[in-house]
Each structure stands twice: as C-alpha cells, then as structure tokens.
Design a protein around this nucleic acid. Structure first.
Length: 122
DNA sequence: GTCTTGACTAAGC
DNA sequence: GGCTTAGCCAAGA
C-alpha cells in the first residue's frame, strides 16, 4: 500500500471480519488466532471489539470464534451463549462440558492436518 | 487530548 | 482443573 487508508477508523474491524469469513463451515478459531491472521499480533481484544461491532444479520460467522481453550466468550446463561452454541451445533461442532475440542474442530488444526498429516488413519 | 472500557491471553496460585 | 491477576492496545466518550 502506498498510502494508509485512514478514511475508515474501524479498518481493523473490516480486516477481522474478513479473516472470520475465511473460517470454513464446521470449524472454529480463537480470538488470538484471528488476531494473528489479521496481523494484530496478540491483540485478541481487538477481535472481540470488532465482532461486537458487527451489524445484526451480518454474514460473518462470528459464532466460529471462541476464546482460548475452546470456551465461548459469553457466560453460559447468556442469550449470546445459547445463540452461538446452537449455530455451532447446527454446523456439526460438538460441545463437551460447554467447550469445543479445538484439536478436532480448530481451523488451523484442520489445515495443519491437511498439510502435515494427509494420511492419518486415526 | 485524556480517560475508561473491553466478546482476550498467558502465567501464577 | 479452575480462579485470579497483570499486561496490552485501540475504540468510544
């Protein structure tokens, strides 16, 4: 880029949304991972703020973004938690004790297996 | 221009 | 294994 795009103060949001859109159906990622892919380093909180700024009805699969450890970012009794969990389960993501196994459904983990373990029987 | 807030993470207990 | 604390950094007021 020859000049910084300063016309949009929330450019970070756009980048984050773009990264989240790359998460395939049935897979999940973490805030930290999205932040890294977006070039934000470990600014995971920026990702949370960006997702929070998403308009209602946005096509961005925000529900595929989890906190470290595969846990949701919301308290279990919140409406957002129920919404996120319902959407993930509808995509085939399984929950165990209110957590998602990132080793099975993690985005990068899936790519990693494709790249490094293309013939793993189990 | 400054202060507060926050959908986080990693480390320590 | 789960909770608490400290650190980080940009957006919003």
């Amino acid at each position: 880029m020859a000049a910084p795009q300063r016309d949009k103060p929330t450019q970070i949001n756009r980048i984050v949304w773009r990264v989240v859109e790359q998460i395939p159906h049935g897979c999940v990622s973490t805030y930290g991972q999205v932040a890294d892919l977006a070039g934000l380093g470990r600014a995971a909180r920026r990702v949370g703020s960006a997702l929070r700024a998403l308009p209602a009805g946005s096509p961005v699969p925000w529900h595929r973004v989890l906190r470290a450890g595969g846990r949701l970012a919301f308290p279990p009794d919140s409406d957002a938690y129920a919404t996120q969990r319902t959407r993930l389960e509808s995509e085939g993501v399984e929950f165990e004790h209110e957590r998602v196994d990132l080793a099975r459904f993690g985005y990068q983990r899936s790519l990693d297996e494709l790249l490094w373990k293309p013939a793993d029987p189990e």
